[in-house]
Design a binder for these strands. Structure first.
Lengths: 157, 157
DNA sequence: TCCGAATACTTCGAAAACGAATCTTTCTTC
DNA sequence: GAAGAAAGATTCGTTTTCGAAGTATTCGGA
């Protein structure tokens, strides 16, 4: 009926697929997708602050804290207070984490991304462009809503 | 660096935007996006079984149960055992739900979909097509994985 | 130097989401 | 007709996710 409804349905199908994939990865490796994202960010960039991880992964700081809690409980990361700025905490991979990542290096690439690989290059770029366009539109929501509120603020002065 | 990483980042930005929007709607209306989706499905289709709602919304039955629990706690739906097939339960909107939906009819359409409306028709269709293509790729993951397992099954016989 | 603002992280509470297990009811097969 | 399979819904346990509130630390200005 409505193109907007179709968009919402497609988005819902995608988020569901992401969730189901995460659970499949969990059964195979004992780690969820978000946990793997955090570990791979650390592998790629070296030691990081929680706030940096949050920025890289597009997650809130609170979410990162809870993911780090579980990774630490599994002995995959360590937290170490910074000496210069004692508000910050440096997160490092443990030896076990490196082993774990070596054993299962491409878990995130599995599944849908294998399918994605089979596509022509132009189609891959097309899909990426569409996703980034949508992400912009959705991020813009907050920014666009602000001026509407400001009208009220200005009226108050 | 990698186009696959970019895809994952864009997907993460989109799911985050969906979550943030849901929380904003919650503050404005007292209902989250998934709750509104369920209510609007009932408004559009009339009384439904939980399994039907799950199919329409692309959610698991367990998730629907918990959403219905909250809607029922708010007095917005009623559950009624079927007389013909007593395994099934018929979910209906209450009078309050109809009022609530009349007062806030387009909450889901708010935000990003307003932006979406401003786009040219061809771009809207382009974005929809890309999303549906991705949803197919991601749904295909399970289907594609199955035959691989079957090889082992056949070998066992 | 000291006090309030800003920053970094954690804690808390709540919704969402799922699979697996469970319960009830219906259907199928013998 | 009874035993077992199948189907519909719920319950349970877990992770993710967030904002808001709380804590500790640093910074900036008076």
């Amino acid at each position: 009926m409505n193109i907007q409804d179709d968009i919402l349905v497609a988005l819902r199908r995608i988020t569901r697929a992401i969730d189901l994939h995460s659970r499949k990865v969990l059964k195979a490796s004992g780690l969820t997708s978000p946990q793997l994202v955090v570990l791979q960010a650390l592998k790629k960039n070296g030691d990081l602050y929680p706030s940096s991880i949050a920025r890289i992964a597009s997650l809130s700081q609170a979410t990162i804290t809870s993911i780090l809690d579980r990774l630490q409980a599994q002995g995959l990361i360590t937290r170490q207070r910074c000496t210069e700025d004692r508000r910050q905490i440096l997160v490092s991979l443990t030896v076990q984490a490196h082993e774990r990542l070596r054993d299962a290096p491409e878990l995130l690439q599995a599944g849908f991304l294998r399918e994605f690989d089979k596509l022509e290059s132009w189609e891959q770029l097309q899909l990426l462009a569409s996703l980034q366009r949508l992400a912009e539109l959705m991020d813009a929501e907050d920014i666009d809503a602000a001026p509407i509120l400001e009208v009220g603020d200005i009226a108050k002065n």
